[in-house]
């Protein structure tokens, strides 16, 4: 597992190896970028948010107590950034300018797919993402961590500092809420 090398990279980075920081970014950038995208829904904003998260990692790496807990620490830090950015953007009316009818990305035709099917697939994905984004912050968070980031209950429990049972019940409620939002599409 590539994430198993994270503690070693953190140790090297703390000792002044800046290449180790680059490798950490490369290792986690996909997850962090998609987490950010799940919050702000806009690619440029997500990129800026993900960069800010890694800048904070760079500056505050000394605050990490256990190198083996880097993943959880990174997600905690990322969630704080995402929450703050989400609130800030919402106050500015950023999300009210985005409509379900506005495709965020153009069609990306894979080999063998017809434009109609590809459009339907993209449209479905966009609707699901919109539905996730419309959830309450706590519900959205647990869906993103479990169903999109594919973290274990134990990891989520550590990141959110909640008992595992609470995480499961929150996740169940969030999934039910998401199901109700997508009911007309199912």
């Amino acid at each position: 597992m590539p994430y198993q090398e994270a503690p070693e990279l953190v140790r090297a980075f703390r000792q002044g190896d800046h290449q180790a920081f680059n490798r950490l970014v490369t290792l986690y950038q996909r997850k962090i970028y998609n987490l950010a995208l799940g919050y702000v829904k806009q690619e440029d904003e997500a990129k800026d948010l993900a960069q800010d998260i890694f800048v904070t990692v760079y500056r505050q790496i000394d605050k990490l107590k256990e190198e083996s807990k880097f993943g959880a620490w990174l997600y905690q830090l990322a969630l704080n950034h995402c929450r703050n950015r989400y609130q800030k953007l919402r106050r500015r009316g950023f999300f009210s300018n985005q409509s379900l009818d506005d495709p965020e990305t153009g069609l990306n035709l894979s080999s063998g797919a017809t434009p109609e099917k590809e459009y339907e697939r993209e449209n479905t994905a966009r609707l699901v993402r919109e539905a996730i984004a419309s959830l309450a912050p706590a519900e959205k968070e647990v869906i993103l961590l479990r169903d999109l980031q594919e973290l274990s209950y134990e990891e989520i429990s550590e990141i959110l500092d909640l008992p595992m049972g609470t995480v499961k019940s929150k996740l169940n409620r969030a999934r039910l809420a998401l199901k109700n939002r997508l009911k007309h599409y199912l």
Binding site: Q51, R129, I132
Partner: peptide
């Protein structure tokens, strides 16, 4: 619903993320 959520593909991060 779970199938739809799990079928979502993750986006590739932009190439200029690290330089940024």
């Amino acid at each position: 619903t779970l199938n739809l959520v799990h079928s979502l593909e993750t986006h590739a991060p932009p190439a200029d993320l690290l330089p940024g």
